[in-house]
């Protein structure tokens, strides 16, 4: 088992366990911290796939900005104590069973698919994920969506301020 495989299995286990702990922990602050752990694991996967730009963007945008925003809102609402009313047992069981059935069906479909048999995601090689290549394509072919996304950010900022303003 090579080092790449060991890192892959470690990151996968870290992502799955942290994602489960997001659901299972009662305290919302702990859920946010476990979700940050999931994002770090996914960034590790991106680095393993040699998508270095996306790994850094994932860390800065998700683990840095968005999760701090979540933590800030939770602290603002003073929710960092376990007072969440529980759904009744049968509803929880029904949710878990339906999600598990969906996972089982999708996994069995993936295992039956012959088109993807033997296909390999290349790791540690290939330079499409480096920032030079992505920047060239982003500012040549995708410059219009890039500018439109700046308008989207402006409207989101104005919308968040208008909604959050105390009237």
């Amino acid at each position: 088992m090579s080092a790449t495989q060991i890192i892959f299995w470690f990151l996968s286990a870290l992502a799955l366990v942290s994602a489960l702990m997001v659901l299972l922990s009662k305290n919302p602050v702990h859920s946010v911290l476990w979700l940050i752990s999931v994002f770090f694991a996914i960034s590790g996967h991106y680095i393993l796939l040699n998508a270095q730009f996306l790994a850094i963007v994932n860390l800065i945008v998700y683990a840095g900005a968005i999760m701090v925003l979540f933590l800030f809102v939770i602290m603002l609402m003073n929710l960092n104590k376990d007072m969440e009313p529980q759904k009744n047992m049968w509803m929880k069981l029904a949710g878990a069973i339906s999600g598990g059935c969906l996972l089982m069906i999708l996994v069995s479909l993936v295992r039956q698919a012959t088109e993807i048999g033997g296909k390999v995601a290349e790791m540690k090689t290939g330079n499409i994920g480096l920032i030079g290549n992505l920047g060239k394509v982003l500012f040549n072919e995708y410059v219009v969506p890039f500018e439109i996304s700046s308008v989207l950010f402006l409207s989101a900022m104005v919308g968040a301020i208008v909604i959050g303003k105390k009237d």
Binding site: Q5, S12, A19, L23, V73, L79, E84
Partner: peptide, 30 residues
């Protein structure tokens, strides 16, 4: 790594997210 491993990992994370939306009642966790 074979692509199936990545598909199954992503499906597992996605289904954990779905179960979370169905099970939890706190809107921030959802």
């Amino acid at each position: 790594m074979p692509i199936q491993y990545y598909i199954i990992l992503s499906l597992a994370l996605f289904c954990i997210g779905i179960v979370g939306v169905l099970v939890r009642r706190n809107v921030i966790i959802v």
